[in-house]
Amino acid sequence: MSLYPKNMFFTSESVTEGHPDKFCDLISDTVLDECLRLDPMSRVACETYVTMGLVIVGGEVTTKAIFDVAELVRELGNDVGYISPEYGFDVNTGAIARTIHRQSPDISLGIAKKGGKIGAGDQGLMFGYACNQTKELMPMPIMLAHQLARKLTEVRKTKVLPYLGPDGKTQVTLEYQNGKPVRADYVVIAASHTSAVVTPDGKFTTEEAKHEIIEKVVRPVMGNLMDKQTKITINGTGKFLVSGPQADTGLTGRKIIVDTYGGWSVHGGGAFSGKDPTKVDRSAGYMTRYIAKNIVSAKLADECLVQLGYCIGLVDPVSVMVNSYGTGKISDEALSKLVRKVFPLSPQGIIDHFKLRRPIYRNTAAYGHFGREGFEWEKLDARDELLAQFSKV
């Protein structure tokens, strides 16, 4: 049994770091990082809103850190490439407003427990997933969509395609046969650009620019997954000249499917960016991925979904669920018991295990929180303990 039919087409999308929503995620996580850098015990729920000529940074922040939020935003915006109205936003001249207040004392009561323990910063349910479709143990469509988005940014910043702007989206449709991805059926690229590659009538991105995007972005990523029947669309409306915050209001936390499994797996609804690790939306979301990935890597299942449920103020999860879709070496109930034995599931346990009070979050904000090297929750260091406990079952 599998999560989906064996023969099907499946689509996932990603966005570049300059997409307005993702730019907001980056700002929120950059603010979080600066708080944690100066005060590791900071409690942060930072939200960002961006529109034409304006960035608003707000939320609940309790910290000893003192820094210039506007300076931080401008530095980030310059790195992303929002340096001209030509790209829909100039971070150096745009207005930046800060509307931040302290965390609710009612929430604080639930987090700070006697004996130094930490209660969950909110109620909620978190899902993590892993499968053996890719070496990263992720669904293949979202991994390819992320790679295309990264490539768009790379060729822009290295001036290989100097007419590209920061804003962009990618989408990949794969065909599955007998449960395995076999070919790319459709690739969609939305690549913002300057007037340098607009046709004389002002209606379209030039065919030359589209060809360059296919050759420099699509083919290097998609490789032999493409065949003669693969369809490619570049800028489906004709052109992408008006872009960035000028064209699309951005908000933190609006790309939760891009951030996780591309729609392949279940999602609990909670966003990640801008939240300190006492918020289990984030920290337990990382733990569920870590659990699922280690189970699949240990070959205890070919496919694994993990759910954790929490109540605000409580230390331990209210529920632990594992679903191996019939691929597990033992029953899902036995796998759930194994998870409780092997993994630290309290908020404090998760924070300590992943060292989450460090300023590591800006690097998570774009191109997915999972399936990437360098993050503690992507390590496979729980396999031996899982197998040791499995041997006792």
Rank of each mutant, 00 (worst) to 15 (best):
T153A: 15
Y367C: 01
A298L: 09
I330Q: 07
P344R: 11
F204P: 00
P359M: 06
K203E: 14
T153H: 05
M287D: 10
G374S: 06
P105Y: 09
T252W: 03
E34L: 07
D185V: 13
T206G: 05
V218W: 07
A284Y: 10
F354A: 11
T364D: 00
D25A: 06
S108E: 15
K355A: 07
P166M: 03
V172P: 13
P166A: 03
A112T: 10
R150M: 14
L148D: 03
R254K: 13
G269K: 11
R156S: 10
P5Q: 09
D227T: 07
R219Y: 04
Y49Q: 01
V280F: 08
V221H: 12
A120P: 06
E376M: 14
A65T: 07
A366L: 06
D259V: 04
I27D: 00
I27H: 00
N235S: 04
P20Y: 08
D352P: 05
Q123R: 00
K231N: 11
A95G: 02
I360G: 02
R74L: 07
E34D: 08
P85D: 12
F10I: 09
A209V: 01
P181N: 10
S331N: 00
N92D: 15
V218C: 10
I27L: 01
K379V: 00
Q246V: 08
M52W: 11
L241C: 00
H211N: 13
N294F: 10
V217R: 11
F272D: 01
D276T: 10
M226A: 08
E333Q: 13
Y367S: 02
L144C: 04
Y49D: 00
N224D: 15
D259P: 01
D68A: 07
R372L: 09
G270S: 14
G94W: 10
L335G: 07
V296C: 14
S324P: 11
T278W: 08
G326T: 02
R98K: 14
V280T: 13
S42A: 13
K117P: 00
M8W: 12
I351H: 09
E17V: 04
G244Q: 13
Y310T: 04
V306T: 03
D25M: 04
G110P: 04
G250R: 02
L161P: 03
V31E: 01
I257V: 15
